[in-house]
Amino acid sequence: MFYIDPHIHMVSRITDDYETLARMGCLAVSEPAFWAGFDRGSVEGFRDYFRHLTQVEPRRAAQFGVKHFTWLCINAKEAENVPLAREVIAMIPEFLQQPNVLGIGEIGLNKNTPNECTVFLEQVELALQYDLPILIHTPHLEDKYMGTRMILDMLADFSQLDPNRVLVDHVEEHTVREVLDRGYWAGMTLYPVTKCTPKRAVDILEMYGTERLLVNSAGDWGPSKPTAVPDFIMEMRSRGHSYEAIQEVVLENPMRFFSQSPHFQLEVPTQPSSASA
């Protein structure tokens, strides 16, 4: 079955992972800019990171027929350094015309601090200025609920922002309803311990339906599993959900959301049987 992983940090994965994803039917990955496992010391560190995301990873993915898309920003973890964050924000437009850039992300909150809010707001402004979709990171564990609500409060203050062009990621049982009710897209991250499991993600879909919901692996430096989306597909199949329902969540929904970005293009191979029918 073909699918897209809409949130995965391939810079932290080995080339073999691309091959494994391709074998499992992954057509495309979307990689938001995030923390590199350490705080970068200067704006030049970020410039090199954005070159990595816009030049190196697309080539590495292409070897296996996987398309690589990316989102650029300064992440919440490094937003505590506001002067550096502002230098990075000023530099981002240099890369926005690169052909794999979909939008601004993953911006958001980490520890829900005033500095993180400042940098978040300035990057929402950047997205609006360049008319780009936004991908949002919500905090972990005990900070998730408060942080998600704060993010939704801040977004509500931008009257010109179209909720349909915003994906709020890492939702769980206590945050998904509010995000969907306000018209945003919601992503469920399948992490072994700290986020959602494939089973709970299917439970949430059974409760809320498939509209505007995505699943991703967020594979990164920490304990995570780049093949978590295929695990989710297995769980859907073993519960008897239809092929159409699975495709809706793992392929069509990401395509719908990403298609709002001028750089998104993806050829989905058609099966010979359906082509001749």
């Binding site: 506001v82 005033p114 500095n115 809010c117 400042t118 707001l121 564990l141 005990e142 900070d143 998730k144 609920y145 408060m146 609500r149 704060m150 409060d153 769980e172 049982e173 206590h174």
Partner: peptide
């Protein structure tokens, strides 16, 4: 959802009053 809320810090609807952007 109820278990999630037990392990969550509560939402303060007044949070903006003590958060000033830099």
């Amino acid at each position: 959802e109820a278990v999630q809320m037990i392990f969550s810090r509560p939402y303060d609807p007044q949070w903006k009053t003590h958060f000033r952007p830099v």
